[in-house]
Amino acid sequence: MERAKWILAGLLVLVAVGAVQTPLRAEAPESTATPKELVATYRTLADTILGANKTESNLVASILSTTYHHAEATLAMVHASLKARKPAKAELEKLAALVAQLGNEGDAAVGGVRKRLVEGGHHHNAAEEHQGTYDEGFVIVTRSAKKVFLEAAGNIGKMTESPKAAALDAEWQKVKTQYTELMTAR
């Protein structure tokens, strides 16, 4: 990611330099200021870089939102099964997996993309990673939130033998609270 940014930046700089090269050669510059065309190009590039970060944040929020609503729907299915006294193991495990995905900011495939970004040197929350607030490459889900989600996921997964609606709701409440907190904070 960082490499791509620098390549893009390099190209833009080359274009800009090309645009100002003739007058620079034709007459000696009277000012030591960076040519305004270069500054303007850099400003545009900054917009792109910052925009990409914002887009990344929005995309991850969408992944979380999709996962959360999928989980919510699955929870309703579990409740329906429980109410009908039908087996709910498959739905419960699906719910556990979805809640775990909230904690992991996506499934393993998303994790693969995140790893690629980290490999390229891109850390969305570099300073916070250093402080231990975020895991490497994570964008929205803090380490403490991750723990909450994963603990809830494990507890939900363990309910498959004798699921109780009240216990399930208690776990879901933890998920909901944590999710809402994260999404409100961004």
């Binding site: 495990e93 556990a96 997996a97 809640v99 775990a100 995905q101 904690g103 992991n104 393993a108 895991d135 380490r143 991750k146 723990k147 994963l150 996921a153 494990g154 939900i156 997964g157």
Partner: peptide, 17 residues
């Protein structure tokens, strides 16, 4: 089926890989 994350065997107690 990969169940590491919610089975508790994927990460440390600190939820870290």
């Amino acid at each position: 089926r990969e169940v590491g994350l919610w089975s508790g065997a994927a990460l440390s107690a600190n939820a870290a890989a």
